[in-house]
C-alpha cells in the first residue's frame, strides 16, 4: 500500500512543479499547503480500502469471530496504516524540498513531530471512517463526504505549524501542535468508546 501512496505523492509533486511556475510563484508561501494536501489525498487513497478489501473473501467475519478484542483489530489496522503513512512521508518529504527548492533550516525534531502527528491525524480519521462505511452500499461516497470536512482541522494545524517551522527565523508552532495533539487524542479516544458498534452494521 505504501508503494502506491508514495508513487501517488511523487506524481503530485511533478504535477505541482509544472502547474506552478517556479520562476513566478513564490513557492515558499504555498509550500506547506502543497505538502499536506498531497499527504491528505495519499492517505485518503491508501486508507479508503482499509476495511473494504476484507469484503471479497469475507475475511472480516473471520476476524470478528477470532478470539480476542475487536479493539485489537481496529488498533492493528490503525498502526499499520500509520506505519505506511510514515514510510511514505519519510520517502517523499525530501522530494518536496528538492523540487520546490525550499530552503532547509535544520529543524529536524519539530518537522518530524509535525509529520508524525499530522500523519496520525489523517490516518486515525481515515481508519475510523473506513470502519464505519465498510458494509454500506455507497461506502466510497460516505467515506469521502465525511473525511474531507473532518480532516480540515488537521490540515489547518499541520499547515500552520509547518509554516512556522520553515519560516526564517523559526516561528512558534506550539499553539498549532497542541491543537493537533488534542484533535489526535479525541479521535483516538472516540473509536475506543464506539468500537463495539463500529462493524456490526
Amino acid at each position: 500500500m505504501w508503494v502506491a501512496m508514495t508513487a501517488f505523492v511523487v506524481m503530485v509533486v511533478f504535477l505541482f512543479a509544472f502547474a506552478l511556475d517556479t520562476n513566478r510563484v513564490r513557492l515558499a508561501s504555498v509550500f506547506p499547503g502543497i505538502l499536506w494536501m498531497s499527504f491528505l489525498l495519499a492517505g485518503m487513497i491508501g486508507m479508503s480500502r482499509t476495511y473494504a478489501h476484507e469484503i471479497p473473501e469475507d475475511t472480516l467475519t473471520g476476524l470478528v469471530l477470532a478470539p480476542g478484542d475487536r479493539m485489537a483489530i481496529f488498533l492493528a489496522k490503525l498502526t499499520s496504516a500509520f506505519l505506511f503513512m510514515a514510510v511514505m512521508e519519510l520517502l517523499t518529504t525530501p522530494l518536496f524540498f528538492v523540487f520546490f527548492s525550499e530552503p532547509w533550516n535544520g529543524e529536524w525534531i519539530l518537522l518530524g513531530m509535525t509529520l508524525a502527528l499530522g500523519g496520525l491525524g489523517i490516518v486515525e480519521l481515515a481508519t475510523l471512517l473506513s470502519a464505519v462505511s465498510v458494509n454500506l452500499k455507497s461506502a466510497e461516497m460516505v467515506f469521502m463526504l465525511l473525511l474531507f470536512p473532518l480532516e480540515i482541522p488537521v490540515l489547518i494545524t499541520t499547515v500552520e505549524a509547518t509554516t512556522a517551522i520553515l519560516s526564517n527565523p523559526v516561528g512558534n508552532p506550539w499553539l498549532w501542535l497542541h491543537g493537533l495533539l488534542a484533535y489526535d487524542a479525541i479521535f483516538l479516544a472516540l473509536p475506543l468508546l464506539l468500537y463495539e458498534y463500529l462493524w456490526e452494521v
Binding site: L129, S133, L136, K137, L145, L194, Y197
Partner: peptide, 21 residues
C-alpha cells in the same frame, strides 16, 4: 447519508455512529 441507505436498522446504527463523530 441517511437518504442513501435502505435497511432501517443498519442505517440507524451507522447514522448514530456518524452523528457522534
Amino acid at each position: 447519508l441517511r437518504e442513501w441507505s435502505d435497511n432501517r436498522a443498519r442505517r440507524a446504527t451507522v447514522s448514530a455512529v456518524i452523528a457522534l463523530i
